[in-house]
Write a protein that binds this DNA or RNA. Structure first.
Length: 200
DNA sequence: CGTTCGATGCACT
DNA sequence: GTGCATCGAACGT
Protein backbone atom coordinates (compact mmCIF):
# COMPACT_ATOMS: atom_id res chain seq x y z
CA UNK A 1 0.00 0.00 0.00
CA UNK A 2 1.82 3.08 -1.31
CA UNK A 3 0.05 6.20 -2.37
CA UNK A 4 1.72 9.51 -3.18
CA UNK A 5 -0.27 12.31 -1.62
CA UNK A 6 -2.18 14.31 -4.28
CA UNK A 7 -2.33 18.09 -4.36
CA UNK A 8 -5.82 17.99 -2.87
CA UNK A 9 -4.24 16.65 0.34
CA UNK A 10 -2.40 19.96 0.86
CA UNK A 11 -5.31 22.12 -0.34
CA UNK A 12 -6.99 22.02 3.08
CA UNK A 13 -6.90 23.81 6.45
CA UNK A 14 -3.27 23.73 7.63
CA UNK A 15 -3.93 22.22 11.06
CA UNK A 16 -5.70 19.36 9.33
CA UNK A 17 -2.75 18.84 7.00
CA UNK A 18 -0.27 18.94 9.89
CA UNK A 19 -2.20 16.27 11.76
CA UNK A 20 -2.59 14.12 8.66
CA UNK A 21 1.12 14.34 7.81
CA UNK A 22 1.95 12.48 11.03
CA UNK A 23 2.59 8.87 10.02
CA UNK A 24 3.13 9.70 6.34
CA UNK A 25 6.49 9.02 4.69
CA UNK A 26 8.73 11.79 3.33
CA UNK A 27 10.91 10.54 0.47
CA UNK A 28 13.86 12.22 -1.28
CA UNK A 29 15.38 10.60 -4.36
CA UNK A 30 18.81 11.86 -5.34
CA UNK A 31 21.74 10.55 -7.39
CA UNK A 32 23.28 9.49 -4.06
CA UNK A 33 20.34 7.24 -3.28
CA UNK A 34 16.87 7.24 -1.81
CA UNK A 35 16.29 8.36 1.77
CA UNK A 36 12.96 8.35 3.54
CA UNK A 37 11.37 8.54 6.96
CA UNK A 38 8.06 8.58 8.77
CA UNK A 39 6.94 12.07 9.81
CA UNK A 40 6.63 12.15 13.61
CA UNK A 41 6.62 15.93 14.25
CA UNK A 42 5.27 18.92 12.32
CA UNK A 43 4.22 22.54 12.92
CA UNK A 44 1.58 24.72 11.28
CA UNK A 45 2.29 28.31 10.23
CA UNK A 46 -0.91 30.00 9.16
CA UNK A 47 -1.43 33.33 7.44
CA UNK A 48 -0.30 36.93 7.79
CA UNK A 49 -2.04 37.15 11.18
CA UNK A 50 0.23 34.45 12.63
CA UNK A 51 3.23 36.46 13.93
CA UNK A 52 5.52 33.42 13.66
CA UNK A 53 4.63 32.73 10.03
CA UNK A 54 7.01 34.08 7.40
CA UNK A 55 3.99 35.69 5.77
CA UNK A 56 3.51 37.93 8.83
CA UNK A 57 5.42 40.73 7.09
CA UNK A 58 3.48 40.34 3.86
CA UNK A 59 4.64 39.08 0.50
CA UNK A 60 8.41 39.14 -0.04
CA UNK A 61 10.94 37.69 -2.45
CA UNK A 62 11.76 35.01 0.10
CA UNK A 63 8.27 33.85 1.13
CA UNK A 64 6.31 34.14 -2.13
CA UNK A 65 5.85 30.37 -2.38
CA UNK A 66 3.62 30.46 0.72
CA UNK A 67 1.12 32.45 -1.33
CA UNK A 68 1.17 30.01 -4.22
CA UNK A 69 0.01 26.50 -5.01
CA UNK A 70 -0.41 23.97 -2.22
CA UNK A 71 1.81 20.89 -2.40
CA UNK A 72 5.01 22.85 -3.09
CA UNK A 73 8.15 22.60 -0.95
CA UNK A 74 9.12 25.86 0.75
CA UNK A 75 12.75 25.57 1.85
CA UNK A 76 14.73 28.34 3.50
CA UNK A 77 18.14 28.83 5.05
CA UNK A 78 18.32 29.73 8.73
CA UNK A 79 20.94 30.50 11.39
CA UNK A 80 23.63 30.50 8.75
CA UNK A 81 23.78 26.73 8.52
CA UNK A 82 20.40 24.97 8.44
CA UNK A 83 17.82 24.36 5.74
CA UNK A 84 14.21 23.94 6.88
CA UNK A 85 11.54 22.31 4.73
CA UNK A 86 7.82 23.09 4.67
CA UNK A 87 4.87 21.83 2.69
CA UNK A 88 2.79 24.72 1.35
CA UNK A 89 -0.88 24.35 2.28
CA UNK A 90 -4.27 25.92 1.53
CA UNK A 91 -5.44 27.54 -1.67
CA UNK A 92 -3.43 30.08 -3.66
CA UNK A 93 -3.56 33.46 -1.95
CA UNK A 94 -3.72 31.89 1.54
CA UNK A 95 -0.12 31.93 2.79
CA UNK A 96 0.38 28.89 5.04
CA UNK A 97 2.60 25.85 5.40
CA UNK A 98 3.56 22.90 7.57
CA UNK A 99 7.16 22.69 8.82
CA UNK A 100 8.44 19.11 8.90
CA UNK A 101 10.40 18.81 12.17
CA UNK A 102 11.32 15.16 12.62
CA UNK A 103 11.29 11.76 10.92
CA UNK A 104 11.73 8.19 11.98
CA UNK A 105 14.29 7.00 9.39
CA UNK A 106 12.96 4.26 7.14
CA UNK A 107 15.32 3.80 4.18
CA UNK A 108 18.73 5.18 3.20
CA UNK A 109 20.21 5.10 6.70
CA UNK A 110 23.70 4.75 5.23
CA UNK A 111 23.48 7.85 3.07
CA UNK A 112 21.86 9.71 5.96
CA UNK A 113 24.84 8.90 8.20
CA UNK A 114 27.24 9.93 5.45
CA UNK A 115 25.52 13.29 5.09
CA UNK A 116 25.34 13.87 8.86
CA UNK A 117 29.02 12.96 9.20
CA UNK A 118 29.94 15.66 6.72
CA UNK A 119 29.06 18.20 9.41
CA UNK A 120 29.49 16.49 12.78
CA UNK A 121 32.45 14.14 13.34
CA UNK A 122 30.29 11.53 15.09
CA UNK A 123 27.69 11.48 12.32
CA UNK A 124 28.60 7.92 11.35
CA UNK A 125 27.79 6.66 14.84
CA UNK A 126 24.42 8.33 15.29
CA UNK A 127 21.52 6.17 16.44
CA UNK A 128 18.71 5.81 13.90
CA UNK A 129 16.39 8.01 15.91
CA UNK A 130 18.96 10.80 16.02
CA UNK A 131 19.47 11.01 12.25
CA UNK A 132 16.34 13.04 11.48
CA UNK A 133 15.56 14.49 14.91
CA UNK A 134 14.95 18.20 14.38
CA UNK A 135 14.18 20.24 11.26
CA UNK A 136 17.81 21.09 10.53
CA UNK A 137 18.96 17.53 11.03
CA UNK A 138 16.36 15.96 8.77
CA UNK A 139 17.10 18.23 5.81
CA UNK A 140 20.79 17.45 6.29
CA UNK A 141 20.12 13.69 6.38
CA UNK A 142 17.84 13.78 3.33
CA UNK A 143 20.07 16.10 1.33
CA UNK A 144 17.47 18.86 1.14
CA UNK A 145 18.88 22.32 0.34
CA UNK A 146 17.70 25.47 -1.42
CA UNK A 147 17.79 23.42 -4.62
CA UNK A 148 14.57 21.84 -3.40
CA UNK A 149 12.88 25.18 -2.77
CA UNK A 150 9.78 25.29 -5.01
CA UNK A 151 10.02 21.54 -5.68
CA UNK A 152 6.65 19.97 -6.40
CA UNK A 153 5.76 17.51 -3.64
CA UNK A 154 3.43 15.88 -6.14
CA UNK A 155 6.45 15.15 -8.36
CA UNK A 156 8.86 12.21 -8.32
CA UNK A 157 11.96 13.51 -6.49
CA UNK A 158 10.74 14.94 -3.17
CA UNK A 159 7.30 13.71 -2.12
CA UNK A 160 5.15 12.25 0.66
CA UNK A 161 3.57 8.80 0.64
CA UNK A 162 0.69 7.27 2.54
CA UNK A 163 1.62 3.74 3.59
CA UNK A 164 -1.35 3.21 5.86
CA UNK A 165 0.68 3.76 9.02
CA UNK A 166 -1.03 5.20 12.11
CA UNK A 167 1.36 6.33 14.86
CA UNK A 168 -0.06 7.05 18.32
CA UNK A 169 -0.56 8.81 20.57
CA UNK A 170 -0.57 12.18 18.80
CA UNK A 171 -0.18 15.29 20.93
CA UNK A 172 -0.24 19.07 20.38
CA UNK A 173 1.91 21.77 21.97
CA UNK A 174 3.11 25.32 21.31
CA UNK A 175 5.63 25.63 18.49
CA UNK A 176 9.34 25.38 19.23
CA UNK A 177 12.13 27.89 18.70
CA UNK A 178 10.02 31.01 18.21
CA UNK A 179 9.44 34.06 20.39
CA UNK A 180 6.06 35.15 19.05
CA UNK A 181 2.83 33.27 18.52
CA UNK A 182 3.77 30.86 21.30
CA UNK A 183 0.17 30.89 22.52
CA UNK A 184 -0.92 28.79 19.55
CA UNK A 185 -0.66 25.01 20.10
CA UNK A 186 0.18 24.27 16.49
CA UNK A 187 2.96 21.71 16.95
CA UNK A 188 1.81 18.17 16.32
CA UNK A 189 3.89 15.14 17.32
CA UNK A 190 3.90 11.46 18.22
CA UNK A 191 4.11 11.54 22.02
CA UNK A 192 7.04 9.61 23.45
CA UNK A 193 8.61 8.88 20.07
CA UNK A 194 12.42 8.80 20.17
CA UNK A 195 12.85 10.84 17.01
CA UNK A 196 10.79 13.83 18.18
CA UNK A 197 12.89 16.95 18.82
CA UNK A 198 13.06 19.00 22.00
CA UNK A 199 14.29 18.26 25.50
CA UNK A 200 15.26 14.62 25.83
C1' DC B 1 20.11 17.58 35.85
C1' DG B 2 19.85 22.64 34.00
C1' DT B 3 21.18 26.93 31.07
C1' DT B 4 24.29 29.57 28.02
C1' DC B 5 26.63 30.39 23.99
C1' DG B 6 29.24 30.16 19.46
C1' DA B 7 28.94 28.97 14.66
C1' DT B 8 27.50 31.08 10.40
C1' DG B 9 24.92 33.57 6.27
C1' DC B 10 21.30 35.98 4.52
C1' DA B 11 16.63 38.34 4.20
C1' DC B 12 14.72 42.18 5.76
C1' DT B 13 14.49 47.08 7.90
C1' DG C 1 22.87 46.39 11.54
C1' DT C 2 19.50 42.98 13.51
C1' DG C 3 17.40 38.75 14.13
C1' DC C 4 16.43 34.47 13.09
C1' DA C 5 10.83 28.19 12.57
C1' DT C 6 18.85 25.36 14.91
C1' DC C 7 22.35 22.42 16.87
C1' DG C 8 25.55 20.68 20.01
C1' DA C 9 29.26 21.59 22.99
C1' DA C 10 30.44 23.76 27.24
C1' DC C 11 29.58 25.15 31.46
C1' DG C 12 26.95 25.72 36.14
C1' DT C 13 24.20 23.41 40.01
Amino acid sequence: MKRRLPRSFYDRPTLEVARELIGKVLVHRTPHGVASGIIVEAEAYIGEEDPACHAAAGLTKRNYLLYGRPGIAYVYFNYGMHYLVNAVTEAEGSPAAVLIRALEPLTGLAVMRRRRAALSPNGHDLAAHALCRGPGNLTRALGITLEQNSADLCGCHLFVEDRGLALEPVGWSPRIGINVGTDRPWRCFVAGHGAVSGRR
